[in-house]
Structure formats: structure tokens, C-alpha cells
Design a binder for these strands. Structure first.
Length: 478
RNA sequence: CGGGGUGUGGCUCAGGUGGUAGAGCGCUUGGUUCGGGACCAAGAGGCCGGAAGUUCAAGUCUUCUCACUCCGACCA
């Protein structure tokens, strides 16, 4: 079979060349195509369907926590972008500018939004007057543009789809609560829907968002041992409110600045799905975000009655789950490989022999475990298998992370781990940026986060030996 | 933004020392097949990433440029 395999499309082995493997998956699972613009990709139906499922799931969680969707313009006047100093400086290098309308030069150039803080702030300043107007809990689904130097599908593209929540609150406490609430929403979503375990924590000063008071993050670990910032939630304090003059009158008729938050996740989540779960046979999707959860593949479909039975089963299943029927005139074996490549969680084979025995064959994408199940209660059996698969995938991803999480007592140790067995590295830190910089220079590892769940690895900073303030998760990151 | 690699039918690639293109897969049609990427037959399809130059003659040599990709510095 291996000889034949070479004649057909094969993907690079994950262990041999992780980067190439990743690129192969995104292309061969039909997630994206490259466009004629550098760094911009086309999300094809299969890739976009995954995003739609992510959107649907998250959007419900946002609504359930009281948020409303809005849509802001994609252009930001230069003067508006410049109102918050740290914010402009953070984004200036990667902003795309519109200078002309038709043939006419604009009097003020417009920035293509790299993020919409300034737009929300301007709007909030206009609509918030009284404590009765608060809180404002807005979210928008949109695309943003950042002129990156190097790009990779899903992980870093010039334009990407995301969601950005922007809220305004009366008090510091409320803003802090909101920041953490949404971080928790993200974490719960990643674990239960994407089957990706995350570590919640705070970003260091060096790594925090431009203009934020504090940035919180969920960090996940990819199969190659590199870290991925999977989502962030920022507490802005009243910094933006002061820059944009967003004030309200409180119950005592006093003018107060609002306290704001913002939080976002992007199509990068799809990159995480690939790098956490997929294997040498292609994409592996957790059932919750699989556009097709079960693909029915008839065997000897030309035989009398086979297609009819297959269609009947598809129809029954479609009342409960997302199901497809591949009745193309490909060989069954070809279809098996194809739908494995595309990450369909379950395959249902149905041939004359099965029909005779009133059964079908079910094969799980993650384990490739094959089982025969009765057609009588096929719906219930499949729902159970999908549920089990969703849980198993999270458990496996968790086991992988545990097996790639280390502790270090010295910079040398961090460096050695990074080079030999990359992963999350727990080590103590004094809180000084000079030490953070030194660790990055010497090992390539950055501070992923200061986890909420602290452990005492030692009393001393891994770098300078001074008394330690925090345990930090270090790692090389995407 | 630096360093490396690659651009030739839809895809993967072959085309020593220059003489206007070839294979496999895929695609179309017909037939036989169908429980892990089937087989036979007949077809369609490319000016060789782009531009300029050298030459009687450029896929092949020179220069410039664009894109993809990998590795680093910066970011979701």
C-alpha cells in the first residue's frame, strides 16, 4: 500500500517537519487557498464552516453574558488613532493606510483598523452620559488588518477574522470582573468546544496589550511544544477614558471616567485546532466544530438498495447531527482517505453485508477504532460515540500538555529544555524586565503568562537569584 | 526586515554544455470495477511567475522584480 500511497496525495510527516506538515494540512484539508495578495488567504467553504461553528458557539456565550453585537467602520482617521499614546506606538508599525479616494488625495489619511479601540472610545464618549447608561457591553465580529512581515495561514495573516468585545463600566471593580469573566468564557469554550486545554494567567508588562492596564491570556501548547496565545482579555482601567474623555455623571452628580475592557479571539483558533489535534493522515476535528460530524460512505453503491439505505440513514441522522453522504463514484478506499484528510470525526460504512446484518461500520477519526453497530438505534449510538470522542480529545490534549510541561531552576535549564524537548516551562521570576529580556535573548523563550494557579518552584528568580515574585510559564511561541 | 529554498499544464516534478516543451497523477468521455486512495481505451489542457537584457536563437545565460515556503527579529 505504501507504494500506491506515493502516487496519490500524501502529507509531510508531523514529526519530520512540523511546519511543512501544518502547511500541507491547511491546503489538503481544503481549509484555505492562497490569494494574489501577499499574506492574505481565501477561507474556503470547509475552513469557513469551522469558523462559523466557532462564531455560533462563542456568540451564544457572549449573548448569555449580556453582550450586544455592533459593527464599526473599517477606517480610522489618523488623528483618532493617535489619541492614546501607547496604543498608537504599539500598532503604528503594522498599520495599512488609505491615502486616496478615487484619484483624489485625502486631506487626512485613514487607517485600516488593526483593532477598533479608538472607534469604540469615540462612540462611547458620545453615547455615555449617565451612570444609567452603564455598563455598555458591546462586541463586534469583523476583520482587521495588520501589515505583518511574515505570514502563515491562520496563525498570522495580513487580514484576519476575529471578534472584539469592548465594554465600559462605572467602576474599576466591574471592569476587572468583566475582564476575568470573559477570559473564563474563552477558557471554557476552548476546553469544551475546541478540546484544547488552556492555562489562564496574566501577561507581563512587556507582553501586555498596547494601552492596557493589564492583559490576561489563555495559553495553549501545540503538538511541537510551542506555545500559542489563544485568546486575550484586557483591563483598560480608565486610560482610554481619559484619552477620549469618556465620562458619566454618577449618582452624586459627580463626573467620573468609565473603566473599560476589551477581549478577542481570532481565526488563529483554527490554527490551534490543527496544531493540537491533527495527525499524519490529516485534520482531526473535535465533533463540536466539525462541519460534517459523520460521513456516510456506501460500499458497492451500485448494488440494488445500497444507496437507498444509505440515504435513509443520512436522513435519520440529520435530525440530530451534521451528517453527509458521499455518493460520488470514487472508490470507497479513496473516500475513506479523503474524509480523514478533511477531519470528519466519524465515518459510517454501509455495504450489502451490513444491510444483510442490519448493521453498519463506524470508524473514529482520532483513534481509527472500528466498530459494528446496529441500525436500529444508530442515532443514539453515534451521539454517544461523538460525545466520547469530544471528551477523549480534550483528555489526550491535556495529557500531551502535561507530558510537555517542565520546571527549571536556571537559565541553562530553560535553554536545554527549549532545545531538546520544547514545551511549557515553569520557573520563578523576580518581576524585573531585565531578567525577562535576558531569558528571551539567551533561550528564545518568552514569558507566556503568570498563571493564576501559582506554584512555588523555588524562592529565587531563575535569572538573577533575587527573591522571586511569581511563577511564570515560559516557552517559545508562535 | 535579514538568511536559505522554490516558481514549467489543475497537482507533483523532468527538461547536461541555449535550438520555441515532457512524464505521472488529476480532469473529460465510454466500459469494467467498488469493505483502505481500481483498471482499460480514447481525449482536452502549458509559452515555462513577471519585466528588461545578451544572442541568429532563451524554460535554459545576466540583471531587476513579484509571490510562495522555511529559519530568525516583531505581532492575534
Amino acid at each position: 500500500m505504501s507504494k500506491e500511497k506515493k502516487l496519490v496525495e500524501a502529507i509531510t510527516s508531523r514529526d519530520e517537519d512540523f511546519s511543512q506538515w501544518y502547511t500541507d494540512i491547511v491546503k489538503k484539508a481544503d481549509l484555505i487557498d492562497y490569494s494574489s495578495v501577499r499574506g492574505c488567504t481565501i477561507l474556503r467553504p470547509h475552513g469557513y464552516a469551522i469558523w462559523e461553528l466557532i462564531q455560533k458557539n462563542l456568540d451564544k456565550r457572549f449573548k448569555d453574558t449580556g453582550h450586544e453585537n455592533v459593527y464599526m467602520p473599517m477606517f480610522i482617521p489618523e488623528s483618532l488613532l493617535q489619541k492614546e499614546k501607547d496604543h498608537v506606538e504599539g500598532f503604528a508599525p503594522e498599520v495599512a493606510w488609505v491615502t486616496h479616494g478615487g484619484e483624489e488625495k485625502l486631506t487626512e489619511r485613514l487607517c485600516v483598523r488593526p483593532t477598533s479601540e479608538t472607534l469604540f472610545c469615540e462612540h462611547y464618549a458620545n453615547i455615555i452620559h449617565s451612570y444609567r447608561d452603564l455598563p455598555k457591553l458591546y462586541n463586534q465580529w469583523c476583520s482587521v488588518v495588520r501589515w505583518e512581515k511574515t505570514t502563515r495561514p491562520f496563525l498570522r495573516t495580513l487580514e484576519f477574522l476575529w471578534q472584539e468585545g469592548h465594554t465600559a463600566h462605572a467602576t474599576e471593580e466591574e471592569a476587572m470582573e468583566e475582564t476575568i469573566r470573559m477570559l473564563n468564557v474563552y477558557a471554557e469554550f476552548c476546553e469544551n468546544v475546541l478540546a484544547i486545554p488552556v492555562i489562564k494567567g496574566q501577561k507581563t508588562e512587556k507582553e501586555k496589550f498596547a494601552g492596557a492596564k493589564a492583559t490576561y491570556t489563555i495559553e495553549s501548547l501545540m503538538h511541537d511544544g510551542k506555545a500559542l496565545q489563544t485568546g486575550t482579555s484586557h483591563n483598560f482601567g480608565d486610560g482610554f477614558a481619559k484619552a477620549f474623555d469618556i465620562r458619566y455623571t454618577d449618582k452624586n452628580n459627580q463626573l467620573q471616567y468609565v473603566h473599560q475592557t476589551s477581549w478577542g479571539v481570532s481565526t488563529r483558533l483554527i490554527g490551534a485546532l490543527i496544531m493540537v489535534h491533527s495527525d499524519d493522515n490529516g485534520l482531526v476535528l473535535p465533533p463540536e466544530v466539525a462541519p460534517v460530524q459523520v460521513m456516510v460512505i456506501p460500499v458497492q453503491q451500485h448494488r440494488e438498495g445500497v444507496l437507498e439505505r444509505a440515504e435513509e440513514i443520512r436522513s435519520r441522522l440529520s435530525k440530530h447531527i451534521r451528517v453527509g453522504l458521499d455518493d460520488s463514484d470514487r472508490m470507497p478506499g479513496w473516500k475513506f482517505s479523503e474524509h480523514e484528510m478533511r477531519g470528519v470525526p466519524l465515518r459510517l460504512e454501509l455495504g450489502p453485508k451490513d444491510i444483510e446484518k442490519n448493521q453498519c461500520v463506524i470508524v473514529r477519526r482520532d483513534t481509527r477504532e472500528k466498530q459494528f453497530i446496529s441500525l436500529d438505534d444508530v442515532e443514539q449510538s453515534i451521539i454517544k460515540i461523538l460525545e466520547a470522542m469530544q471528551k477523549d480529545m480534550l483528555r489526550n490534549a491535556m495529557e500531551l500538555r502535561v507530558s510537555k510541561t517542565y520546571t527549571a531552576q536556571s537559565i541553562e535549564e530553560i535553554d536545554e529544555i527549549c532545545n531538546k524537548n520544547p514545551g511549557f516551562i515553569k520557573a520563578m521570576w523576580c518581576g524585573e524586565q531585565s531578567c525577562e529580556n535576558k531569558i528571551k535573548e539567551e533561550t528564545g523563550a518568552t514569558a507566556r503568562c503568570i498563571p493564576f494557579e501559582q506554584e512555588n518552584i523555588s524562592d529565587r528568580c531563575v535569572c538573577c537569584g533575587e527573591p522571586a515574585k511569581h511563577m511564570v510559564i515560559w516557552g517559545r511561541a508562535y
